[in-house]
Structures are given as C-alpha cells and as structure tokens.
Design a protein around this nucleic acid. Structure first.
Lengths: 220, 220
DNA sequence: CCCACACTTGATTGATCATTCAACCAAGGC
DNA sequence: GCCTTGGTTGAATGATCAATCAAGTGTGGG
C-alpha cells in the first residue's frame, strides 16, 4: 500500500527528491490551496524537474494523496505530542489541542485554515483515494480525541455518545477556524471553544445523580 | 452601493444577461468551486459572450462578489422563510434551519457543501470585497439565529452569551457539513446536531432555579 | 567492463485560462 | 436623420496549466 522504503542508502545530504516534493506540496497546498498551486510551483520550490515528479507520481492528485498521508502520519508526533506535553488530564488535553489551533490562527494573522478541512471543501470531485485520505485524517484526529473521552471515564455521563462528542470537538475546531479566518478575528474561534467548554462543564455537572444546589457562575 | 435598478423596462422575456450570469455563476461556483469554474463555463451555460460579462463585471472576482451579495439577499426569503414555515418556537426554528441543511446533504448524496463555507476555505487570497461579502453572509446568518435566541427569552440562562451561542450554531452546521461531505455520510451531520441539541437541553435545564421534575423529551 | 535500473533533465505539447478589443446593433432623444 | 448610450458579438492574445517523452546520468551487480 505504502511506497517502498527509501532503498537502504545512507542519509542523503538533502532529503530525497520524493520527500522534497511532498514537503513542498504540503506547504504550498496549505498556503495557496490545491487548485491554485501549479505543478510548476511545486517543481520550482522543490528544485526538481517535472520528469522527476511524474516519475514518482502518476499525476497531481497522487501527489495530494501523498501529502494527506504525511499529514495523517504526522498527527501523533507533530500535533498531539507537542500539544499534550505536560498535560495529563484527558479533558484538559482536548482543550490543549484546541489551544494549539488557536496558536496557528494568531501566528498567521487569522489566515490559518486547517489544511485538511480546507482541502475537504475545496476539492469538489476528488478521486476516491483522495477522499479516503481526507476521511482518514479526520478519523485519526477524532479517534485521538475519543481516547481522551474514554480516559475521562465516569467524569462524563455514563451512556454518553463519546464518538459523537469527539466528532463534535472536530466540528467546533473546523467551524471556529472557518469563522475566525473569514472575519480575520480569533475571537470567533475563542467563542466557539468557550461554547464547547461550557458544554463539557454541563456534561460533567450532569453526572451527579442527585440535584445539587445550582452553583451558577457567570457564563462567558 | 448596489447596481442601479434594471432600467424601467417591462419584464424581459428571459432574465437580463447580468442576472443570468450571476445565477449561472452561483450554480457553478457551488457545484465545482470558484477556482475550477472557468469564465468560459459560466459564459456557455448562461448563453452569453465574454464581452457581455466584462461589460458588467471588471473581472471574475467581481462576479463572485455579486454572487455572494445574491446569497446574502437570499438568506431571508430563500432559506429562513421556507425553513420556518409553520415553526413558531424560536428554538425549534434553529433546529428547523439545521434540518434544512440536512435536506441539502441527503438530496445531493452527501456532496453538499455550504456555498459560503466552501468559498471561505477555498479562496486563500480574496480581494477585500470578497472577504467582506463572505463575512456579511455569515453575519446575516448568525444574526437571524441570534434573534431566535433573544426571542427564547428566559428559557435560556440570563447571563448567557447569545451571540457566541448563535455563532456556535453556525459552527456546528459548517463543521457537520464538512464531515458529512468528507465521509459521504449524513450521520456525521446528525451527530453534530444531536450534540448541539443536547447543549440546548442542558442550557434550558440550567435556567431552573429550583430543581423541578425534569420534563425530558427524547433528543433527536 | 558492461548492462540494467532508478532517477533526472528540460524542452515540448496542446489544452485551457482570464481578459481584451474593435466592430456592431437597437432604441431614445433631438 | 443622426448621435449617444447601453449592450452584444466573438475572434484574438498571451499566459499558464498538467502532463509527456526521448535522451541523459550515476550506481551497483555480474
């Protein structure tokens, strides 16, 4: 399924051509989108020739699939690991993950878009492998969040739909990013996350069996 | 600000060229995206010549702005009015609106994308007028939902951030649509809406000062 | 030494892109 | 009758697009 391992050669001075192409494409697809990135753009920035690209990939869409696979493989080491460094509590981890996206938004002056989400909405007629690769990314992301929810154990109501809730975290992230980007204002993301936070607070409160004195704090 | 009214001529046999162009562009941008729709596509489908298009619009982006303005003007009559026909309760109206999007998803075999959301993520370097027109669409949508929330009065907690909650409804819709589309499965949208429903149920429960017998109806 | 194979080179193809333009048409005002 | 104005026509332009391909290069195996 995956391409054969890179021979048994010692580490090249610079990354092998195939990797440079994928890395460059990843960057450009994120910055300019898939459709607005020409093969020539990738070639120039990667310092390669068209023949090399078409030696490794049958076409542009296959390059995209490779990019999506690299994203998927990077979720754990590049996204979750740094976001969760020093954060043990499973529910805190969820909001630490969202905080990570917040960083992305502010550090790009609110132009940030989730690379997967943007591609998912940009590409209207994806090859099946492309669509599956995007779905695999969402699935891996959601699965990680779902593990947090499982780890939260009985702090959440017993019969709750943990898969649905994990997807809802993704929903919040994607919707919040979209609005922050469109309005060029992080506050839209922050308000979405605040709503999700409130959702979690209420869910955790709900686990109490007996009605307790309503300990209401200001919301917002 | 808006283009001058269509002369004082009697109704043309077919819509005036400008309108045909905008309508066709609206359809094609939605079906194939902005970048993948060529000016020639619009021309062919609208039955017009390039000179006509460039007589009315300086360029493709300006055509897009006209499309976005038409969406914005259509939110009330084309989206809200039919969705809310026969639905009086303000909170029910919110879920009636979401049900409308659900229709869109199933009737397009889960290829549906919110036209505004898709454009918002597809276009990476929009002219300022384009970005503003997209933001105006989101704003009008959120404002309508927010009115429902205001109308819900004290059924929601007093100090609640109604604007944030209205935006959260949009967040849920956009995130749910994105996932349903990517996985080609409405269930992702349904689960997102179910989570939002639960959020509203908990919010409403929260307003009760004293614990009352919970008159719970099934959510979904 | 030579072959086979993996990879590279870069010019080239033909399609398609957004946009331009000069010529043209029809109706209203004078 | 003529001019202006608003709209139309469609060929032409030059850029850029994804993809191709024949000719190369370097390396490792025999």
């Amino acid at each position: 399924m995956r391409p054969a391992p890179r021979k048994l050669a010692v580490a090249d001075p610079q990354p092998a051509t195939r990797d440079r192409l994928v890395l460059t494409a990843m960057k450009l697809f994120w910055e300019k989108g898939y459709g607005s990135t020409s093969v020539a753009d990738v070639l120039r920035e990667a310092g390669a020739n068209s023949g090399s690209l078409y030696h490794f990939f049958p076409g542009k869409q296959d390059l995209l699939v490779a990019v999506l696979e690299m994203y998927r493989d990077g979720i754990e080491p590049m996204l979750l690991a740094p976001a969760w460094k020093g954060v043990a509590d499973p529910i805190d981890r969820i909001f630490a993950l969202l905080a990570r996206y917040r960083q992305g938004i502010v550090s790009t002056d609110c132009v940030y878009g989730c690379p997967i989400g943007s591609l998912a909405l940009e590409i209207h007629e994806p090859d099946p492998p492309v669509r599956e690769a995007m779905a695999a990314n969402f699935h891996a992301w959601v699965a990680a969040v779902q593990e947090c929810l499982e780890a939260a154990g009985d702090r959440l109501p017993a019969g709750i739909d943990r898969r649905g809730l994990a997807e809802f975290v993704l929903t919040t992230m994607e919707g919040g990013v979209m609005q922050a980007r469109t309005h060029r204002d992080v506050a839209y993301f922050d308000r979405a996350v605040a709503q999700l936070k409130e959702h979690f607070v209420m869910l955790q409160r709900k686990t109490r069996v007996a009605p307790i004195k309503s300990n209401r704090r200001k919301a917002g």
